[in-house]
């Protein structure tokens, strides 16, 4: 299992390194969304719950792009067939894809959070604020990656793939949005960063756990052919 996961993960990273496709698209889309927010909200700076909402929505929409592309290469170039022929546990695919998507999201956030800090955020980016944001976003990324892998695998075999991903993915990710936005709001407050709200972090963690188990239980059925 461990070797299969690491092989799949290496394949995923090599693919992205040789022809960078997903990460630049996600990052570019995210920055453009921030600009769109600047004009549509008609605000030069945001703080508190508005800042949390802008950041979470931007990251979520950027993640949708990544989820849409997650299985395209496997579907079109025969990656699924190769994987199904190999005598390995099928859960390896779920774990590898979820880890790859988490990695993509983290890289995109490393670019987008500073960009958000320069372009829109009112309070200054301090080290203390950054580690809080990082902790919350990591928990949210895990949830987005698990659900995204599940929805991406579900949608890849349908005719209306690009439509199905946001239609199913966005409602499923609403608890992540609620949890991340509520947790981020005090951290990004103008009146000085508040403490991390433990309750919302616990909800994010619970969501990750439950959907991790669900994905583990049902993912095999999406690969059977």
């Amino acid at each position: 299992m461990g070797r299969a996961v690491s092989a799949l993960l290496r394949k995923e990273l090599r693919l992205e390194l040789r022809t960078p496709q997903v990460i630049p698209a996600m990052a570019l889309f995210g920055v453009t969304t921030l600009v769109i927010f600047h004009f549509s909200l008609q605000r030069d700076t945001v703080e508190g719950d508005l800042a949390a909402g802008v950041l979470v929505v931007t990251l979520l929409f950027a993640a949708m792009l990544g989820i849409n592309r997650l299985f395209v290469a496997d579907h079109e170039e025969g990656g699924f067939d190769g994987f199904l022929l190999a005598p390995v546990d099928r859960t390896a695919m779920l774990v590898a894809k979820a880890l790859a998507l988490t990695g993509f999201l983290v890289v995109v956030e490393l670019l987008l959070v500073p960009a958000f800090g320069f372009l829109l955020l009112g309070p200054a980016m301090t080290f203390e604020l950054l580690w809080k944001v990082a902790a919350i976003l990591l928990l949210a990324d895990a949830g987005v990656a698990i659900v995204g892998t599940l929805v991406g695998a579900l949608a890849i075999q349908t005719r209306a793939r690009d439509l199905i991903v946001p239609l199913i993915g966005l409602p499923l990710l609403v608890p992540v949005v609620i949890g991340a936005a509520k947790a981020l709001a005090p951290a990004l407050d103008a009146a000085g960063a508040g403490a991390l709200p433990g309750r919302w972090l616990a909800i994010l963690g619970l969501y990750d756990l439950v959907f991790g188990l669900v994905a583990y239980a049902v993912f095999d059925f999406l690969l059977e052919d």
Binding site: V210, V218, L222
Partner: peptide
């Protein structure tokens, strides 16, 4: 049928 069931299980837990 299989994909619809996967969706129904996921949404049922949700």
């Amino acid at each position: 049928a299989r994909y619809a069931s996967v969706f129904a299980v996921t949404a049922g837990v949700f």
